Amino acid sequence: MSDDHARVREFFTARAPVWDSKYPDDTPAYRDAVARLGLRHGDRVLDAGCGTGRALPVLRDAVGAEGIVLGADLTPAMIDEAVKAGRHTKGQLLLADAARLPVRTAVLDAVFAAGLIAHLPRPDDNLRELARTVRPGGVLALFHPLGRAALARRQGRTITPEDLRAEENLQPLLARSGWRMTSYVDVDTQFLALSVRMS
């Protein structure tokens, strides 16, 4: 395991038991974001960096019983919390690195990633790996239940010009990685950047 991976795993292992309590009322934001993906019953979707699996029930509702929902996370403690919460019944949980997903090429219709981009050690490579798993025309949602400014205030920090989630930084990053950004929302109550997998 690389030093970057070890740091991410250490960060989330310490926070896993209280993770759900950090954002207790964000289900409506998740529902809105997933609705914007345009998923249909029978679709295949990955929650990349699924954490405690908070998106899995919403994704399952969107794709129905006949769809496939995968949740992948690097941190065993987060996967354990997802199981304790019963969310493993809504999708298959994978202990996996977003840089090397155990998913075949071009089989997914969409990837949902809540809070993931801030923790990617190599964003270009990692987003390219997500693109590998999605069919041309499939969708990526980079989401957070708080916008950049609200999250920065909550964490007691200021937003820097290098912030990967800034539209002027994110759009070219996605383009280099096989995605075309189609919409960008950054308000206090939600961050959501949608992109389409280029062929």
Rank of each mutant, 00 (worst) to 15 (best):
S2C: 10
D4L: 11
R7Y: 00
E10P: 11
T13C: 07
S21T: 13
Y23F: 14
D25H: 15
T27P: 02
D32W: 05
D32Q: 05
A33W: 02
R36Q: 07
V45E: 01
A48D: 03
C50V: 09
R54F: 01
L56I: 04
V58L: 05
R60H: 05
D61W: 01
E66T: 10
I68R: 01
A72E: 09
L74Q: 14
T75I: 11
P76G: 04
E81I: 08
A82E: 12
K84G: 12
G86M: 11
K90V: 07
Q92R: 15
L95R: 15
A96N: 08
T105V: 03
T105D: 06
D109Y: 01
D109L: 05
A113G: 08
G115K: 14
P121G: 06
P121E: 07
D124A: 11
R128P: 04
R128Y: 02
T133D: 03
G137W: 14
G137M: 07
V139N: 03
P145W: 13
L146G: 03
A149C: 10
A149L: 10
A150T: 04
L151P: 01
A152W: 05
T158N: 06
L164S: 09
R165I: 07
L173S: 04
A175W: 08
G178W: 07
W179R: 11
M181D: 02
T182D: 00
S183V: 08
V187D: 02
L192Q: 03
L194I: 00
S195T: 02
V196E: 11
M198T: 06
S199E: 03
